[in-house]
Amino acid sequence: MTTVSLLAAATAAAPTRLDPLQLFRDADIVVQIVIVGLVLASIWVWAIIVSFSLRMGKVSRRSAAFEREFLLAKEPETLLEGRRRQDVPSARVAAAGLSELQHSTGAGGRVADREGTRSRVALAMEGQVATEADSLAERLNFLATTGSVAPFVGLFGTVWGIMNSFFQIGEQQNSSLAVVAPGISEALFATAIGLFAAIPAVIAYNRFSHRVNAFEARMQRFADRVHAQISRELEGQ
């Protein structure tokens, strides 16, 4: 067989594009473990992104509807009873304020210390606002952790793969690109998977954190309106 024929056969046998599955199968066991871990983290990141988006949209719509009804309701307690079993953060904020008002009201419905009652009602609603915001942001910690850690985990897999490539050079006494390139490709694949997991996590964390902060500010404004309404009722007593 001539040299031209050998080159033609080698060219025909060479892959024309990267095959992620083949890179994974050919990788070292340590690199494979790193890749599997990063893929699972990426799947969980996207699950959080989808579930949080759906929940945030539902919570925002329910809270907006409740706030409009509550501020116009003649009997807020009756409206709250219908919202207790639903996921409505604004309803829980208002319930915290009204509950504190009931505890501060004597048996005759009179309030002995109006200023103290106002302060306690405000503190109760502020605490509930913080609790609701913390509950919404609870799962975002995984996005922050993945966004900061995943690139380094992928880099660990890359370093390990490159070390293995240099070991193969020593074993085969051959430093040609044909010996080094496959191991380096498999190693760099781990870094690519790390970035694939980290980039959506960072973007989603920043976006969702902004939405949680905006929703917390909105709940605080609603709490202020409820507090003002309660203060007017106390002044009328």
Rank of each mutant, 00 (worst) to 15 (best):
R68W: 00
F152R: 12
T131S: 05
A144P: 09
I49N: 04
W44I: 06
A150F: 07
D87P: 06
K58I: 09
R55Q: 13
F70I: 06
A94G: 05
A137K: 05
R118Y: 08
D134F: 02
R92G: 02
G37T: 03
R68E: 13
G116M: 06
S51C: 04
T117I: 10
R139V: 05
L98W: 14
A47D: 05
S60K: 13
S104T: 06
W160S: 13
A124F: 03
V93A: 02
L123G: 02
V149L: 15
P89A: 07
D87T: 08
R120N: 12
L98G: 11
W160P: 10
W44F: 10
E100H: 03
G97P: 07
F52G: 00
S63F: 05
M56T: 07
E75N: 15
I48W: 01
V36D: 02
H103N: 09
E126S: 09
L101P: 04
I43T: 03
V59N: 12
L71E: 09
S99Q: 15
E67N: 02
G106A: 09
E77M: 14
Q86P: 01
T131C: 00
E132V: 02
A94N: 08
F142S: 11
G116C: 07
R55E: 14
A107W: 10
R62G: 10
P76R: 09
E100R: 15
R61G: 09
V39C: 06
F70V: 06
L54R: 12
H103T: 03
R120Y: 07
S42Y: 02
V93Q: 01
T131V: 01
G108R: 12
G147A: 10
A96Q: 08
A107M: 14
K74Q: 13
G37S: 06
G57T: 05
P89L: 07
E126C: 00
S42M: 05
G57D: 02
E100D: 09
S53T: 14
A122D: 14
V149Y: 11
S90C: 02
R84Y: 01
Q102C: 00
V153F: 13
G97C: 09
G97E: 07
A112Q: 09
D134I: 00
G161I: 11
G109P: 11
D113T: 04
S60F: 10
S63G: 10
R92H: 03
S42E: 03
L143V: 04
S148Y: 13
Q102R: 15
A94W: 03
A95C: 06
W46T: 01
D113Q: 03
S148R: 13
F66C: 05
A73K: 12
R83I: 00
